[in-house]
Structure formats: C-alpha cells, structure tokens
C-alpha cells in the first residue's frame, strides 16, 4: 500500500530546527534553506551548527587563469571548490574562520571571510612604527603570523595581533584604529618572536630564546574600538598605558607594557568599519 507523502514543509518549526542543526556542512545547510519558505525561515545563521573545521588547501589555477582553493572537510571528507578573488595570490593566515591576507604588490593587509566574501581592509603595513627605517623586509612576508582575539562576524570588540617585520616586533590593530600599534615588552626588544596564539582572553607569544609573554586582550580591546580621529586615538593609547598591562615572562621582565606610539604620521588608510 502506497502511503501519500505528508507535507514536509508543514513540519513544525521546532522539528525542522532539529533536522537543520544536524546538517553540519554549510553546503547542505544552504541547500536546506532553499527548498521552500518554511525551511528557509528555519535555516538561520544561528541554527547552523558547524562540526569540524575545513582544511584550506593551497591555491590552484584553472585553465582561464582564475585562482581557486579547495577546502577539505574534516567532518566527512567532502571537497569544496571555492573562488576567493580578494585573497587571490596573497599570503593567507587563518584565525577564527577568517583569513588575514597580505598582498604581494602593495603589501596591503585585509581580513577576509572566505565563505561570505566579507572583506575588512586593515591599515597598510607602512603604518607600523618606524616602517620607513627598514627596507629589508619582503612585503608579503612582513607579517609572520597574525591572530584574532574574537570572531569579527559576532563582535566589533576584537583585536588582530601580528608578529611583524622579520619577526622582530608585535603589533596590534583594533576596529577603528588608523594604524598598527606596536607592543613593547620591556627587556625583550632584541628578541625574535616565533609564534603567537590566542587562548581564553589572552594572547601568548613565544620568542626564539624561549621567553613566553602573555597579555590580556581586555586591557586594550573596547578602550579604543570606536576611535575615529588621531587625537582620540592618542588619548586611548595613553589610557591603555595607564592600565599597566600585566605581562608575565619566564625571565621576570618588569610587568609593564609601553605602547610605542611616537610616530605622528597619518597615512589616511581607507578602512571599513565592520
């Protein structure tokens, strides 16, 4: 006996949510949301429950010279081909599902979300401290590693922290900042920074000589996030200095951090507020 197909578009919303949250691949989820109206209203961003991350493979080029990347799903082995024109031929560093990209030609720095193509331009590397004094750095490798402290899709209170300039310095940028701000850890100026990670509200960096340095993101996020002019920015950095960011180190360096903000140059970078 053939039973008539019940109306799946009439399945109660709560039950549709139970099904949608089990579609852990973004492709399946987007298709689910295209089937009909009621399914579409179920497939909201909040109901998406992504399982494991995608592994981004090296950039490839098709016959027409367009670049693309393959993403390998650690969840079920699916391979997804995706063009990311804004990240084409750039150095890409991943953090919190975003790519921090550095261009080859101009050395421009951006935050790019590979699946939504949202693009946030960051100040140029020439806004880092004493940039003009040093011409030995390759544009594309100027930033060795960069990490986010929070996902820009969810908040504007985040910081991009980067190891820059031949691994000699650490600088950060917050939404609204017109330039990179250098972090100076007293007693460690001559070190090379090997790695940088964000974990539980703190950014940890380790130097080649084995020093582990820690700073608390709360000490400089939210203070200057809404800055628009340079004078306001200077105020914010002053107050940041006054906050006396605590830094611990294996070699007992003094627990102070000075934000090196002596460059007065204004570079008029066109950045987009997220």
């Amino acid at each position: 006996m053939m039973q008539e197909m019940p109306d799946w578009s009439e399945l109660p919303h709560d039950l549709l949510v139970l099904i949608a949250t089990r579609l852990n691949l973004i492709v399946d989820y987007l298709i689910f949301g295209t089937v009909c109206n009621s399914w579409h209203s179920t497939a909201t961003k909040n109901n998406f429950n992504s399982g494991l991350p995608w592994l981004m493979l090296a950039e490839e080029e098709d016959n027409e010279g367009n670049t693309f990347r393959r993403f390998f799903s650690l969840y079920d082995g699916t391979i997804l081909k995706k063009r990311i024109p804004k990240a084409s031929r750039k150095c890409c560093m991943e953090s919190m599902d975003w790519l921090i990209t550095v261009g080859d030609d101009e050395g421009e720095i951006s935050l790019i979300h590979p699946f939504s193509d949202v693009h946030i331009e960051l100040p140029h590397q020439n806004t880092t401290l004493d940039y003009d004094d040093d011409h030995s750095t390759d544009l594309m490798t100027f930033i060795r590693k960069a990490v986010l402290s929070a996902n820009p899709s969810h908040t504007s209170d985040y910081v991009v922290m980067a190891i820059e300039r031949n691994m000699k310095f650490i600088s950060f940028w917050r939404p609204g900042d017109l330039r990179w701000t250098r972090v100076i850890w007293e007693g460690t100026q001559h070190n090379l920074f090997a790695d940088l990670v964000y974990f539980n509200g703190k950014i940890y960096t380790v130097s080649h000589s084995g020093e582990l340095l820690v700073c608390d993101v709360d000490d400089f996020v939210g203070l200057g996030g809404k800055m628009t002019t340079e004078s306001q920015m200077m105020d914010a950095t002053t107050s940041m200095g006054a906050n006396n960011i605590v830094i611990s180190s294996r070699t007992n360096v003094p627990p102070t951090m000075a934000s090196a903000e002596k460059s007065e140059k204004f570079s008029g970078i066109d950045f987009k507020r997220w």
Binding site: W8, R22, T34, C36
Partner: peptide
C-alpha cells in the same frame, strides 16, 4: 536520519524526494 538523507543532495532532488512544492 532525516538530516543524513538530505546530505549532499541538490535542491531539486530534495524537493522531488519529499514532493515539496517550491513556494519561494
């Protein structure tokens, strides 16, 4: 089980399988 059956299917295939009329 429903989610597993929907995985890796095209929109057309899902509508066809479940006889859902596209009201978008």
């Amino acid at each position: 089980s429903a989610a597993d059956r929907l995985k890796n299917k095209s929109v057309r295939a899902v509508r066809e399988m479940l006889k859902i009329t596209n009201d978008l």
